[in-house]
Design a protein around this nucleic acid. Structure first.
Length: 502
RNA sequence: GCCGCCUUAGCUCAGUUGGUUAGAGCGCUAGAAUGUGGAUCUAGAGGUCCCCUGUUCGAUUCAGGGAGGCGGUACCA
């Protein structure tokens, strides 16, 4: 007697940091993407798409001392043993695309794209290992006017998405100023430089006191974990904190910025800083001139951005309201998009300097924020009109009704489950939020009519009925009409009408 | 990676000072009512109490290890 072999059953589970998308998610994303695209198109950008995979060397993602790709990217070797990686952003692939097509591309090249990117990192609240970004870049435009356009387009995009003025801000800064300051105070070690920049980047998260700790000895977090600081001297930390901790909502001017910079000891004349300040001032003038106030685009010395490849202006879109998650916990949201000037990325391939500036919107993150706020538009779609199967030998006729409704632009289907239990069919239609069920049994057929059951109206009318007998005999929302009236009558139902006129 | 919390039915969660039949709400299935979705009532199905090892007469409960989830922090090119 053979023992019953236990069949291997894989556990149905998602890889960490990945998620299925519901109909509501997909529709909401589509809507968001459409709105963003509309803004970009209006600014004169054209789409171009690159694939999910790139050769790892093209993305510049090999670890320094090994022939293995960076651990933060998903990588695999193809059958030629070449390392390929899933793209971790849309900027590196664009640089590759531009380098490969420099001769065909008409510069300045205004281009946008949206798509999934992948990062092999620990996911967090609102952070996934697959997420969607929406990028726009101007390649081949060296002037700060291009950067100003980016900042303005970001602001416009926020508002196009329904985020009110005051609920977001585009923070702008210049890497040249930061680099100049760090150089002046003697931070020349690359590692220390990065630590300082990261510390400043944490301002919104930990406040100025936390940043001071990180600039100095280090900081202990709530769980008791200790983070090593940059080890700067107190004489430098003070003025730095003063510079970055200031509320920069007031109108920016070079003079004010300089005044703060002057409080930093050891800071001398620096062409780098002068140049950076001039660029900031020019951007400020450009955007103010067309009516973008400091409530929308703000010069902010604490805006640093982590990426190393930025060479000039950097910008970041931040939501200024609190975000709570589905469990009611307040969530640190941080930025929902950012970017900057990266004049060196294309040069990596061609040797020729190609100036470029661009930014990226974290669509998934932004959607999470909007969803938690209830700021997502109602994406509900009414279910299909369900044609009930009363007699199996009549499915041809039922399918014809479905076909007529579809031809009129109305979502419709014939019930595909077991038709034996009629109640089941209505229950199905109800759960799909169908506007109507169509009923034609032998009685109706003999009279050449159909029953149209307005399920939405029925639900409303039923609120007053507690007793099932009454509920059944009254048939709330139900009416009959001639078979030939099917499409016309269904079109007249409120839910259907609203949908067709949306 | 590091720190903390958590893991019991499809879902949200009780509970067992270590004891024989492990519970609730919601959901699901069926019936009351076989041609009428809701509400109501009745019944039913559904469990490796995350996994492994140990302690014990006995472990879902205790100990150690592991996995997974959540949160913080680091990293985020």
């Amino acid at each position: 007697m053979a023992k019953k072999q236990k069949k291997f059953r894989p556990k149905a589970r998602l890889p960490r940091g990945f998620g299925d998308r519901s109909p509501a998610d997909i529709r909401a994303t589509d809507q968001m993407v459409a709105k963003i695209r509309e803004v970009y198109e209006r600014y004169g950008f054209d789409p171009v798409e690159t694939p999910f995979f790139e050769y790892t060397d093209a993305m510049g993602k090999f670890l320094p001392d090994t022939d293995r790709p960076n651990a933060g990217v998903f990588s695999l070797q193809d059958d030629d043993d070449q390392w390929m990686s899933l793209r971790y952003d849309l900027t590196a692939p664009l640089a590759r695309h531009v380098a490969q097509n420099v001769n065909e591309i008409n510069m300045p090249y205004r281009t946008y794209r949206q798509g999934w990117v992948f990062r092999n990192e620990k996911p967090g609240p609102g952070r996934f290992r697959q997420f969607m970004q929406f990028d726009a870049d101007i390649v081949g435009a060296p002037g700060v006017a291009a950067d100003a356009e980016m900042a303005m387009m970001m602001a416009d995009t926020m508002e196009a998405l329904g985020i009110k003025r005051g609920d977001y801000v585009i923070r702008v800064n210049n890497r040249k100023v930061l680099d100049g300051v760090l150089e002046a105070i003697g931070v020349v070690d690359e590692g220390q430089k990065l630590t300082v920049l990261r510390a400043i980047d944490k301002l919104d998260k930990f406040g100025i006191e936390g940043v001071k700790l990180l600039l100095g000895k280090g900081r202990k977090d709530e769980s008791g974990d200790f983070t090593e600081g940059a080890g700067l001297d107190v004489t430098v930390i003070g003025p730095l904190a003063y510079l970055f901790g200031n509320d920069w909502q007031k109108a920016f001017s070079i003079d004010i910025f300089k005044k703060y910079l002057n409080k930093i000891p050891m800071l001398t004349q620096s062409p780098l800083i002068e140049n950076g300040l001039m660029e900031l001032e020019n951007v400020r003038k450009l955007v103010r001139n067309v009516g973008y106030g400091s409530d929308r685009i703000r010069i902010d010395p604490s805006c640093v951005r982590g990426l190393e490849y930025y060479t000039g202006m950097v910008y970041e879109a931040e939501l200024t309201f609190d975000v709570t998650n589905e469990k009611g916990q307040k969530v640190q949201f941080g930025s929902v998009g950012g970017g900057g000037r990266y004049d060196g990325l294309v040069q990596r391939f061609t040797g020729q300097p190609v100036p470029a500036t661009g930014f990226s919107i974290g669509v998934s993150r932004l959607m999470t924020a909007l969803k938690n706020l209830g700021k997502l538009e109602d994406t509900e779609m009414p279910g299909p009109v369900v044609v009930c199967v009363m007699d199996r030998d009549q499915v041809g006729e039922y399918q014809k009704m479905v076909s007529e409704l579809r031809a009129a632009g109305i979502r419709a289907e014939m019930y595909q489950g077991n038709p034996k239990n009629f109640g089941k069919q209505l229950q199905y239609a109800d759960r799909r939020d169908s506007p109507a069920a169509i009923i034609q049994g032998s009685d109706e057929r003999a009279r050449g009519i159909i029953q149209i059951k307005d399920l939405h109206e029925g639900k409303r009318a039923a609120a007053a009925i507690a007793d099932n007998e009454t509920w059944k005999s009254e048939r709330p929302g139900q009416f009959e009409c001639d078979r030939s009236q099917l499409v016309e009558q269904v079109k007249n139902l409120t839910a259907v009408k609203n949908w067709l006129e949306r």
